[in-house]
Simulated scan of single mutants.
Amino acid sequence: MAILILGLVIFLGIHSTRIFADGWRTSMVARMGLWPWKGLYTAISILGFIVLVIGFRMARRDTMVLYSTPSWMPHVTALLMVFSMILFVAAYIPKNWFKAKFHHPQVLSVKTWAVAHLLSNGVAADVVLFGAFLLWAVLSFSAARRRDRANGTVYAPGNVIGTSITIAAGLVAWSVFALLLHGPLIGVRPLGY
């Protein structure tokens, strides 16, 4: 569990600079330059992610169950993951309703992903992983909305085309991950096949 927590600290720590140390981040970008900062940020993120994955795999060997969920809950998780994938892709597709309405759909995607998985997984390692991401997403979304208000950020309105493309791309992403990749990569087949 310690390696999982270390991975979470590294990965979520670097992703929390805009939450807890935005001034420091700004001064580092000014001192280093944007691209060197992005390179350092990426390197630390990758390191944290690798440690997190290794730690999670090790921690999952301990099957201490903190709570049990009903047998139908994975279906709720699968449905929530459809919305999570739509929100995730909404961050990258212009002129969609989700970005116009929520402003930070990718962070909401992480929040939805974490809640969805906490509903289905009561094993200690899962609760630590998804609980940490949920806490980060709540803090990140709040900080991003405060920055938007302080900067007077205005988001472009969505339209039918952008929103339709976003929903279609989210459904494709969900289908590929849920049906093809989740089992081989994570070891769990969310829909049973």
Rank of each mutant, 00 (worst) to 15 (best):
residue 145 R to H: 13
residue 44 I to T: 01
residue 160 V to L: 13
residue 140 S to W: 09
residue 84 S to C: 09
residue 76 V to E: 01
residue 42 T to K: 11
residue 24 W to A: 06
residue 3 I to C: 09
residue 46 I to F: 05
residue 85 M to W: 15
residue 155 Y to L: 08
residue 58 M to F: 05
residue 88 F to L: 03
residue 146 R to P: 03
residue 189 R to H: 06
residue 95 K to H: 06
residue 176 V to L: 02
residue 28 M to H: 10
residue 163 T to G: 06
residue 153 T to S: 12
residue 88 F to I: 01
residue 135 L to C: 07
residue 145 R to S: 15
residue 110 V to K: 03
residue 160 V to Q: 09
residue 127 V to M: 09
residue 84 S to I: 00
residue 66 L to F: 12
residue 177 F to G: 08
residue 127 V to I: 10
residue 47 L to Q: 12
residue 193 Y to I: 14
residue 182 H to N: 00
residue 70 P to I: 12
residue 53 V to L: 15
residue 106 Q to W: 14
residue 66 L to H: 14
residue 13 G to P: 01
residue 189 R to L: 07
residue 155 Y to P: 08
residue 52 L to I: 13
residue 73 M to S: 05
residue 77 T to C: 02
residue 121 N to T: 15
residue 52 L to E: 11
residue 8 L to M: 04
residue 82 V to N: 01
residue 183 G to H: 01
residue 35 W to F: 10
residue 105 P to W: 04
residue 61 R to Y: 05
residue 156 A to Y: 12
residue 164 S to W: 05
residue 48 G to A: 04
residue 182 H to I: 00
residue 107 V to A: 14
residue 94 P to T: 05
residue 21 A to L: 05
residue 123 V to T: 07
residue 68 S to D: 10
residue 95 K to E: 07
residue 82 V to A: 00
residue 106 Q to Y: 06
residue 21 A to W: 07
residue 190 P to M: 01
residue 154 V to T: 09
residue 133 F to H: 08
residue 29 V to E: 11
residue 155 Y to A: 15
residue 139 L to A: 07
residue 51 V to W: 00
residue 146 R to S: 10
residue 27 S to F: 15
residue 45 S to W: 05
residue 138 V to G: 01
residue 9 V to T: 12
residue 46 I to M: 15
residue 66 L to R: 07
residue 168 A to Y: 09
residue 23 G to N: 04
residue 80 L to H: 04
residue 109 S to C: 13
residue 53 V to P: 02
residue 94 P to R: 05
residue 192 G to P: 01
residue 178 A to P: 03
residue 99 K to T: 08
residue 77 T to S: 08
